[in-house]
Computed example of a mutant assay.
Amino acid sequence: MGLNSMQFISDMETLSPDSGSMDSDIYRTLGLEELRKGVFRSPRVLMLLSSLLDRSVQKNEMLLETTQIKDVVTIFHGLRPPTVSIRNYVDRIFKYSACSPSCFVVAHIYMDRFLQQTDIHLTALNVHRLLITSVMIAAKFVDDAFFNNAYYAKVGGVSTEELNRLEVKFLFGIDFRLQVNVNTFGKHCYELEKESAGGLQIERPIQACRIKENWSSKDDSTACSSTIAR
């Protein structure tokens, strides 16, 4: 966990929920302190973020199917949905990127900013690329140590060249607004915590993003599908 992550912890513990920020209990509940304590199980924030994104994808896809709204096609859109669930993809990123759990909260904030700025709808065609890009950028901003783009590309199932393009597009999409204040961080933590009251997570069988590498399972033999826009 980097110095910026540790500063998040320090800031959160000095604020109360009444101020609109997360208290230390919520912080611990999400599992954002677990790496500092030497506990290496999957933090709860991963499950809640996956559930929130999965429900957003289903809601948006239903909206697009039942209305005349047309989605904005970008380089984040694949030709077909990957075969891995959002939850498994998030778990994979956490396992192999070794980034702090706080990165996933910051990544969620970045995704919100990107979607609001671009009017893109989160769907099964773009959620995976948005995830790997936003988590990578968050790790670079929050953590002291992080891998290079080539490594994140391998974890995410895309080429290094493609991830480089995605990173540039994403950064310009949010006007390089990478700073996250304590109140914004806390607000998103509470939003994720409320997801636990929203019922069981629904994981639709959206196809999988497979990655050929030494640590892959025997079924991981192909990369993500090509994007629609380049």
Rank of each mutant, 00 (worst) to 15 (best):
M111E: 08
P81K: 12
T83A: 13
K95W: 04
F76H: 00
A124M: 08
R80E: 07
T118N: 11
V106N: 08
Y110W: 14
Q116Y: 11
D112M: 13
V127I: 14
F104G: 01
S100D: 15
V142C: 06
Q68A: 15
V135K: 00
Y89K: 01
F104T: 03
S85Q: 11
R92M: 11
I120C: 04
S97N: 10
I109W: 09
A145Q: 13
F141H: 10
F114W: 14
L48K: 09
E61I: 05
Y89L: 07
S100W: 13
Q117R: 12
V105F: 09
L122T: 01
V84N: 11
H121G: 07
P101R: 07
L48H: 06
L64S: 11
G78Y: 02
R113E: 02
A124C: 11
I75T: 03
T123I: 06
T118V: 02
S134D: 03
Q117S: 14
D71V: 08
A98D: 14
V57C: 10
S51M: 13
P43G: 14
K70T: 13
S42E: 15
R87L: 14
I120A: 00
L63S: 10
S134C: 03
R87C: 11
L130N: 04
P82L: 04
F76R: 00
S134G: 05
L125T: 05
A107Q: 05
R55M: 12
V72M: 02
E65P: 00
D143N: 07
R113W: 04
F146D: 09
F146T: 08
R36L: 15
R55W: 02
